[in-house]
Simulated assay, not measured.
Amino acid sequence: MTRVMEGQLTRDEDPLVIDGRVNAGRAVLTARGELVHGCTRVLTQRLAALPASTSHVELDMAGVVFMDTAGLQFLEALVAYGLRCEVPVAATHWTGQPRRILELAGLDTDDPLHSAHTRADSRGPGPVPSAVSLERAEQLLGLREEVEQLRHALDSRPVIDQARGVLMAVHSCTPEQAWHILREASQLSNTKLRTVAAAVTDSATGPAPPHEVRSALRAAIDRHR
């Protein structure tokens, strides 16, 4: 039995980890994390580490919790490995959001590699996309943008809350008033809300905000007094 060591080829910052074992030529791998930018590289490195005697590759996807369009490249890379090495490959046990993305992309959720194989092995221009496939592609793009917006909001929330606390302490305003002050200052100075919030937070112990942000904050504060 050959052991594929966990983390051997994957950097700590990679959103995807693939580990597993090889027994009698059969590679049973387990994927955990997210199929996003960089996941194809992780897969390629893991497959390259398999012994030359590998005769079958099975990838368990139950531990994958999120997938965007990079996941389709991931599937095509797995198919390409199977064709190049002439070994059967499989990616099974899709659940949750990744399974939904496969559905929106028009892939078989039980055997998505079949459709990916068709794409990778195509030698000419593909068929004209149907209205259904175009709609699914648009939905997929919308989901990806929504996820990115949510992630950005989560990243921005701590500094915004800190800025509200500074405004409440310095200007004796309510939490709701502090929020409106930040939002109006962002609009008046044509500056991102997170940037305004960071400037307010930094001003508590460091330099004052830039002139345009400072003027916008003053106007917003005066209006809400």
Rank of each mutant, 00 (worst) to 15 (best):
P209G: 05
L9G: 10
N23G: 07
E58V: 09
L150C: 07
L35P: 04
S53P: 03
A197L: 06
V57K: 04
G165E: 09
S203D: 07
R32V: 01
F66W: 11
A220V: 06
T40G: 09
M5C: 10
S203H: 04
T195P: 02
Y81L: 04
T69S: 15
L43F: 02
V132G: 08
L75C: 09
A52Q: 14
L113W: 01
V200K: 08
G25P: 03
V132R: 15
D222R: 13
A169S: 14
V57A: 02
E86W: 11
T69K: 04
C85K: 15
A49Q: 14
G20F: 01
M61C: 11
W94E: 01
M5F: 12
A199G: 10
D155S: 13
D110Y: 00
A24F: 10
Q177K: 13
A70G: 05
H114P: 00
T92Y: 07
D19Q: 10
D161M: 12
I18C: 00
L16N: 02
T54F: 03
A90R: 12
R32M: 02
L143D: 07
N190C: 10
D68M: 00
S133A: 15
G206T: 08
P127A: 12
A208Y: 09
N23P: 00
H224V: 14
G165Y: 06
A216M: 04
P88G: 08
L217Y: 08
R157K: 14
G126H: 05
H37L: 12
L107G: 07
K192S: 09
V57S: 01
T191M: 09
Q97D: 07
A120Y: 14
G25H: 05
R119V: 14
P210W: 10
E76H: 12
Q8V: 07
D111V: 04
S203F: 02
E13C: 06
D68T: 00
G165K: 09
V170P: 06
L75D: 08
T118S: 13
A220P: 05
R183G: 00
S133C: 09
E76W: 03
S130C: 07
A216H: 06
G63P: 03
N190F: 09
A91S: 06
R194I: 11
Q8T: 12
L78P: 03
L140S: 06
L107P: 05
Q139K: 10
Q73D: 13
E76T: 15
L78K: 06
I101K: 00
E146C: 01
H117K: 15
M61N: 04
R32F: 00
E176L: 11
L107I: 04
A31K: 02
L143Q: 11
R223I: 04
A120N: 08
L83I: 13
L102D: 05
E103P: 00
G7A: 05
E184C: 06
A208S: 14
S133W: 13
A169D: 14
T2I: 13
R225P: 01
D121N: 13
T174F: 01
G38C: 02
S172N: 14
A197H: 09
G20H: 05
A49H: 11
T92E: 09
A197C: 06
L29D: 00
A27T: 06
E103G: 03
V200M: 07
A48T: 10
V213T: 14
A198R: 15
C173M: 15
E86P: 04
S215Q: 15
